[in-house]
Design a protein around this nucleic acid. Structure first.
Lengths: 117, 117
DNA sequence: CTAACCTACAACCGTATGGTTGTAGATAGG
DNA sequence: CCTATCTACAACCATACGGTTGTAGGTTAG
C-alpha cells in the first residue's frame, strides 16, 4: 500500500493553500473535534452554504478532510495524516535552521578563542 | 518585549499563503541554508528577477524572511521563529486529532467489553 | 567619472480565488 | 405522497495572484 509516502510539491501547494484561510482553518478545527455535516458546518459562518461548500472542497482537494455520505447528510471528517505530513515538512525547515544557527554559534565561539592569546 | 506571542489569524493567513508555492518554499530553503542576495537567488529560477523579488516580498510580509542591506546587495535571511509558530499551530491540530482518535478507541473498547457477557 | 550591477517599482495581462444567486436532484419524515 | 432538508453545480462578479516588460535610482569597481 502506498499510503505513507511524502506529499508531492503540488500536494504541499494545495495543503498550505487550504490552510491559508481563517474560515478553512476553523472548519478543519471543527472537523477534528466533531463530525458535522456540510450544512451544519455552514451554520457557523455568515456566508452562503455554497461558499462553505467551496471551502470544504478546497480542504478535500488538499486531503485535509474527507466526506462520508450518511443518509442525506454529508459528514466531514478530518484527515490526520495530511496534517502530520505538513508538520514533517516544516520540521525539516526548522531542523535546518537550528543546525545552521548552531554552526554559526560554533564559528563565533572558535573565533572568540583566538581573540584572547 | 512582545516577541514570542502567537501569530494572529491574519498572520497565519500570510504565513501559509507564503508556504503554498513551490518557488517560495525553495527560496525559504535556500535562505535557511545560506545567505544569498535577491539577484543571486533569482539566478536559480527560470523567471524574471522581478518575479523572484515579488516572491521574496510575500515571504517577507509573512515574516518568514528578512532582508538586510549589505552594500548594493540585499541579503535574504530566514526567520526561524515564524516557522516554529506555524509548526505550533499544526501541532495543536494534530494533538486534537490524536486525542479524538484515542477517545474513539476508548469508546470502541468499552463497547467491546459489554458484548461478550 | 563611468560603466556595470543590484534593487525597486509602476503598469499591464491572464488566470485563480472567494464570494454571490439560482436551479435542480436525492433523501427523510409526517 | 408531499414537503422540507441537504447537497451539488453552473454562472457570474470583483479582486488578488503570478507573471511579464520597462523605467529609474543607488552602489561598487576600474
Amino acid at each position: 500500500m502506498v499510503v505513507d509516502r511524502q506529499l508531492t510539491e503540488a500536494e504541499f501547494d494545495r495543503t498550505f493553500h487550504a490552510l491559508a484561510d481563517m474560515t478553512r482553518r476553523d472548519i478543519l478545527g471543527r472537523a477534528i473535534r466533531s463530525d458535522e455535516s456540510v450544512s451544519a458546518l455552514s451554520r457557523h459562518y455568515s456566508m452562503s452554504l455554497t461558499a462553505v461548500q467551496k471551502h470544504i472542497a478546497v480542504l478535500e482537494r488538499a486531503a485535509l478532510v474527507t466526506k462520508e455520505r450518511r443518509g442525506r447528510a454529508q459528514i466531514v471528517h478530518a484527515n490526520g495524516p495530511t496534517i502530520a505530513k505538513a508538520i514533517a515538512l516544516l520540521d525539516q525547515y526548522e531542523a535546518l535552521w537550528i543546525d545552521r544557527a548552531n554552526r554559526i554559534a560554533d564559528v563565533l565561539a572558535t573565533a572568540d578563542e583566538g581573540e584572547q592569546p
